Computed example of a mutant assay.
Amino acid sequence: MTTATLEPATAPARATAAPRLTFGRLLDAEWTKLRTVRSTVWTLTAFVTLSVGLTALICLAAAGELSAADNDEPVGAFVTWGLLFGQLAALVLGVLVASAEYSSGMIRTTLAAAPRRWPVLAAKTTVLTGLLLVLGTITSVASFLAGNYFLSREGIGLEISDPEALRALLGGGLYVAVLGAFGLGLGVLMRHTAGAVTVGIATIFVVGNLVNLVPGAFGEWLMKLMPGNAGSAIANVEQFNPELLEPWVGFAVFAGETALLLAVAGWLFARRDA
């Protein structure tokens, strides 16, 4: 007769804990998506090329007239002139960071991996603005040096150590960083690239000039508070329009408008289906 021996029950293997989704991992994911998309490279190349190239061209063409004794144009407004057009690329990049995921369906994968939507929006904003702040500052310096070279040949060059010049060079990076966040807010809000870019261009470039047609003090303040007019002042050594807000005041207004747009976009982002 044999005696049955009971084998001790083997404890089930403990499941490997999934790595915790931290904000750092979200930043890494957003940075990977941003730098591996071809549109990012082309958009940033256009930003640098337009900003530096057009500044050099306008200063080359206008330096002779600016040096004339009867000239009343603000010379400092020309040394970052190309940024007026390069900023369009920063706006488009901001829109694409959000809208491209909707058009490709990638947003479903993103939200499946990170269901909490506010941290996702915060990570997108942080990566985008960080990149544009660095590249925008470098581009502003390059634009200043390129344009100032031709102005200096006519004896009207500016000193880069001048406080207003230093403010404008740092301000160029700050402005395009917040402008990119503005585009991101539009992209999240509208979820359509063409529509968001159209609204962004109209708001920054078109409406800001059309409000000059509104009569009285209300029209004057409306013109000052439009996002493009308020924000761009910080990126220029001097202003073509002396009626605009002071540079830091205008930038604070623009940053507040962008924060409000992102808050509205984030609120909808957290409640709408992907």
Rank of each mutant, 00 (worst) to 15 (best):
T2A: 13
A4T: 15
A4Q: 08
T5Q: 13
P12G: 06
P12E: 13
A15K: 09
T22M: 09
G24S: 12
L27A: 13
R35W: 15
R38W: 13
W42D: 01
V48Y: 10
T49K: 11
L50W: 10
A56R: 05
I58M: 12
C59I: 12
L60N: 00
A63S: 14
N71Y: 14
D72R: 08
P74E: 04
V79Q: 00
V79W: 07
W81C: 02
G82M: 12
G82E: 01
G82P: 08
L83E: 00
L84Q: 06
Q87I: 05
A90N: 04
G94H: 05
L96R: 03
A98G: 03
E101S: 06
S103I: 05
I107H: 00
R108V: 15
A112M: 13
A113I: 09
P115Q: 09
R117Y: 09
W118E: 10
W118H: 10
A122K: 09
A123E: 00
L128P: 00
T129M: 11
L132I: 11
I138A: 15
T139C: 09
E154F: 07
G171W: 11
Y175Q: 07
V178L: 09
F182N: 01
F182G: 00
F182R: 10
A194V: 11
G195W: 05
G200C: 02
V206W: 05
N212R: 15
W221A: 12
I234R: 03
A235D: 03
L245Q: 04
P247N: 04
V249G: 02
A255C: 08
L260T: 08
L261K: 00
G266A: 11
L268A: 07
A274T: 15
